[in-house]
Amino acid sequence: MNNRLKVLRAERDWSQAHLAEQLGVSRQTINALETGRYDPSLPLAFKIAKLFALPIEAIFISD
């Protein structure tokens, strides 16, 4: 699954560490998410969507 996490983060000028802190995960997890090599759980996906005030399907794109 692909996602727009890196773009959305860059638009807000947030660091990976800052985003990680906002979401309650580690920076390594943010990196794994951004590279598309780790798909988040549904609760984390909802948390990400809430943080960016976007629907989940606007952030995560199915292959």
Partner: peptide
């Protein structure tokens, strides 16, 4: 203490 990716 660890997050979901670490658990995975």
């Amino acid at each position: 203490r660890v997050d979901e990716a670490a658990r995975e």
